[in-house]
């Protein structure tokens, strides 16, 4: 935990010093003394209260979904605190660009949603989350760091005819069912994740899947050759992202590039590994091997 004076606090400290000087220079006066004590107490209690404010935080839960570059995305924030925490500014890591808008009052255990500002494409590893607060008088800023081993995945801004623009993935509408729902049963190894009946799973505490009539799998294949210029790769990735997002809402797809192969299942959000790859993909030298197509009879593992 660290404390620093804010601009207002620094000015206030200067004023207090000047007043103290005047107090010492002149003969003793009760009211002058009282007012000095008042100013000192205002600062001291403000500091103590500010520290106690952040100390009340016991745990911080953050859900940062993968989001497209150039668009803000909602971040779920759940604070386990002994009491309400005021004027909270959360920064992921130490980059100011990853600062969430301030939360005026966060009640203990109540989840809130904040918009993370638009980020460039990439995977930003975050080791700690910084909490900062100027509560209660704005004279001091108290900061506290909480370990949060996570990353902010920003995939390319989708650019293509089928791109669902400006929408975060976790807001996707439920897909149309493929095939007929035949019944419910316990999860067995090998069952598809998209067939999990989440509501029943949540109630029972054990995975329950829907039994569906088999649907034909005619997923297209997206192949990205990364032996290109950087700008061209960006365009390719943007187009690939649009295609992946469309495929996820449609019939699914297979994404293939040098050293990477994953399936995009239909009817559910694209797998995190696919989005992470789209966020982190870099160009390759021209002498790199071409993307390898997988054999027709071998299905890639679901990511």
């Amino acid at each position: 935990m660290a404390v620093r004076l804010t601009e207002l606090g620094a000015k206030g400290l200067l004023l207090l010093a000047a007043l103290l000087l005047a107090f010492l220079a002149t003969s003793y006066s009760n009211l002058f003394f009282l007012l000095l004590v008042f100013c000192g107490t205002l600062g001291g209690l403000g500091l103590a209260s500010g520290i106690a404010n952040l100390r009340a935080v016991r745990r911080l839960e953050l859900q940062v979904p993968a989001g497209p570059a150039g668009a803000p995305r909602p971040v779920r924030l759940r604070l386990a605190a002994r009491r309400s925490v005021s004027d909270l500014v959360v920064t992921l890591g130490d980059a100011p660009g990853l600062t969430l808008p301030p939360v005026a009052h966060a009640a203990g255990d109540a989840p809130t949603t904040a918009l993370l500002p638009a980020q460039p494409r990439g995977v930003h590893a975050v080791g700690v989350v910084q909490l900062a607060s100027r509560y209660p008088f704005g004279l001091f800023e108290v900061r506290r760091w909480i370990p949060w081993p996570g990353e902010v995945v920003t995939y390319p801004e989708p650019d293509g005819p089928a791109a669902p623009t400006g929408r975060s993935l976790d807001q996707g509408t439920p897909p149309d069912p493929v095939g007929e729902v035949a019944g419910l049963r316990s999860f067995r190894t090998g069952d598809r994740v998209r067939d999990v009946h989440w509501r029943a799973t949540a109630r029972r505490g054990a995975p329950i899947v829907k039994e569906l009539d088999a649907a034909p799998d005619t997923a297209p294949e997206i192949v990205i050759d990364r032996r290109v210029e950087a700008a061209q790769l960006e365009r390719l990735l943007a187009a690939a992202t649009a295609a992946v997002l469309a495929a996820a809402e449609g019939r699914g797809a297979h994404l293939l590039s040098q050293g990477f192969a994953a399936a995009v299942p239909a009817g559910q959000p694209p797998p995190p590994a696919v989005l992470r790859w789209l966020a982190s993909a870099a160009i390759l030298p021209p002498d790199a091997p071409p993307p390898v197509r997988w054999p027709q009879d071998q299905e890639p593992a679901h990511a």
């Binding site: 207002l8 004027d87 301030p102 939360v103 005026a104 100027r134 509560y135 008088f137 704005g138 004279l139």
Partner: peptide
Amino acid sequence: LGVNVLVRRGGVL
């Protein structure tokens, strides 16, 4: 001073 903290921070008020 308290309201000033809120106002200066921006955010939803």
